[in-house]
Amino acid sequence: MLSVRDLTVSIGSDAAPVDIVSGVSFDIGKGEILGLVGESGCGKSMTSLAVMGLLPQPGPRIRDGRIDLVGADVTTLQPWQRVEAGHGCIAMIFQEPMTSLNPVRRIGDQIAEAVRVHDGISGAPAWARAQELLELVRIPDAALQLSAYPHQLSGGQRQRIMIAIALACRPQVLIADEPTTALDVTIQIQILGLLRDLCNRLDMSILFITHDMGVIAQLADRVAVMYGGRIVETADVGALFREPRHHYTRGLMDCMPARNLGARRLPTISGQAPRPGAIRTGCVFAPRCAAVQDLCLVNTPPRLVLGKGHEALCAFPLQAGRAL
């Protein structure tokens, strides 16, 4: 459905570019949920904006790589060009629905607007389609709620509205950038359940971006772990949690409080994430890695294939979850 090859996004001048996303590759199959996980500043949001064609301008730009959406190269196309060329089957939802919704327009109008753009219908048929979309995202009393304004809804309902707008284009790929981070856990699980349900029913693919390993475990089919602008490990979700091979992945899992209940100290990853462009030679994770070797500081780490669909960007990967 979606294939990204060697995507590199840079800021700064062409003469001295600073890569904030470098050499990112992944594929998402039909009906599959790919979880892209990483900490703030790792480049996960920039990756998703590049895929959507929504990189802020002027600013970061795609310096290298290729993005294929349902078999068509869309790397250099603006969003409106994609829609005109018939490649508009991708949609995105964001962390804070209140900033994405127009506060002075009824939600019915906002959904109908997206319907008009993609289906070319307006008036009553568009309004009817809007109600259908609200029912699809399980908003109770959909017909009534079409006339509501965003401030009259709770955070969880607003995120459902955003999903309804995203579904207006009948997307084959949905990008969800931390869609539940601002929500309480009892609301979050309902939104996650809704996304899984839509994925199953509409056979839609989802690129799900989050910092939360717990959310990844419960929702994703495959996982890409991102650090310092690179994907450092990719695997099926079961394999990743059973047997993480990259030291960063292992570190992230270890320092989750839920895994260490009652322990007097939590394991940590020392130091903090590097600024983009701060590390130009060797492995980006080397300064924080507990198993760092001299070679890691000099040589670019290889992308090792460690099992079916399991890759790690590390010269000395963990063996069965432990360092070699």
Partner: peptide
């Protein structure tokens, strides 16, 4: 509702 870092407790559908 707390997401557990354990893929064996996956979400199957709407909740």
């Amino acid at each position: 509702a707390v997401p557990k870092p354990d893929p064996s407790q996956r979400i199957a559908g709407a909740i």
